[in-house]
């Protein structure tokens, strides 16, 4: 019931996004779309995914969209009608194929579906004895599927390299004067008082909450990805309120550029250490004498690596976009 209502709202927002030609409005509605998706994930009991979607989709990606819009401009050109036809055919065909494929999928929530038969029972039954953390998602993500998560962090790092090569982060000092704000400067100063006070009140709790999510990921929803994004959005808030330069004085981009690599290397180092102690790559059980403690330390260390990489990549990308658009 709640699902249906949320899906209807989701469809409505998608329709509105497609129909609007003003990109800024589309970005706004995209953030709304993300948080609706997060709500649906939550109704489906996928708390960790909902967490990621709420943090990434609603917060960070909105800001990145805006930063990109600052470079490319706000209006999209109307497409001539005859240019629509070929893409329309491709999209419809793909949609039909996907619909046809979905006929073969098991019914929603079917207990006999392959995904519930293969490894899921082992995760659900044995993870408490084998890995330890009460949050099974964390133990699957960080321990059973440690290679996959390593790959994901590698993807995030690669994206960072790509953005760095495209935009040239941190190397170019801005020589162009920033555009003068539309309002009179005096008024702008007076007006920002409320926002500044509120931001001062909020930034520190955001950062602390990020650390809580980081270290509490074993017991509740959360983990390195979410914590990194929340930490980064705290820094974004500072940069938005006080301007990019104070934020860059706080976190010099030149030094910040090392941190994505540090996080990834920390992750890899845990794997190497477990190899040196006679186990497989990323087998945390051999890290210390007690296997469960080893799993716990290993998960904490790699979550820290993930968090560092994600936060540093997000902040770096934000800085390079904002410098570019000045």
């Amino acid at each position: 019931m709640i699902n249906m209502v949320l899906l209807m709202l989701l469809l409505a927002s998608v329709y509105a996004i497609i129909r609007l030609d003003r990109l800024l409005t589309a970005v706004l509605l995209t953030s709304l779309f993300s948080v609706l998706v997060a709500s649906i994930f939550m109704v489906l009991d996928a708390v960790d995914v909902a967490f990621t979607e709420a943090a990434v989709g609603a917060g960070v990606s909105t800001i990145f969209f805006l930063a990109a819009l600052a470079i490319v401009g706000r209006q999209c050109k109307p497409t001539p009608r005859r240019k629509i036809i070929a893409p329309l055919i491709v999209v419809s065909a793909t949609g039909c194929v996907l619909l046809y494929a979905s006929l073969d999928m098991p019914r929603f929530g079917e207990p006999l579906a392959p995904v519930h038969q293969h490894v899921a029972p082992r995760y659900l039954n044995d993870s408490a004895a084998e890995v330890g953390p009460p949050n099974i998602v964390t133990s699957v993500l960080a321990s059973y599927r440690g290679y996959d998560t390593f790959g994901e962090v590698g993807v995030v790092f690669t994206a960072f390299i790509g953005v760095l090569m495209l935009l040239g982060a941190g190397t170019r000092r801005t020589s162009i004067e920033p555009p003068t704000p539309t309002g009179a400067p005096k008024e702008s100063m007076r007006k920002k008082v409320v926002l500044k006070e509120v931001a001062d009140l909020v930034i520190a709790p955001v950062l602390i909450f990020a650390l809580y999510v980081q270290w509490h990921g074993d017991f509740g929803p959360g983990g390195g990805f979410q914590a990194g994004v929340i930490f980064a959005s705290g820094i974004f808030l500072y940069a938005l309120i006080y301007g990019i330069e104070p934020a860059q004085r706080l976190l010099p981009p030149r030094r910040l550029a090392y941190f994505p690599a540090i996080g990834l290397l920390l992750y890899a180092a845990v794997g190497i250490i477990s190899m040196l102690r006679g186990g497989n790559f990323l087998n945390y059980s051999v890290l210390v004498n007690d296997p469960l403690h080893g799993q716990h330390y290993g998960i904490l260390a790699i979550e820290l690596g993930v968090g560092i990489t994600v936060a540093a990549v997000m902040i770096n990308i934000f800085f390079s976009f904002s410098e570019r658009s000045l």
Binding site: I63, L66, A67, A70, P178, P179, P181, P185, S188, M189, K192, K196, A239, L240, I241, Y242, G243, I244, E245, P246, F318, F321, S322, E323, S325, L326
Partner: peptide, 9 residues
Amino acid sequence: SLGVSDPAA
């Protein structure tokens, strides 16, 4: 743009 420094900064 997002990176403009505020005059009050």
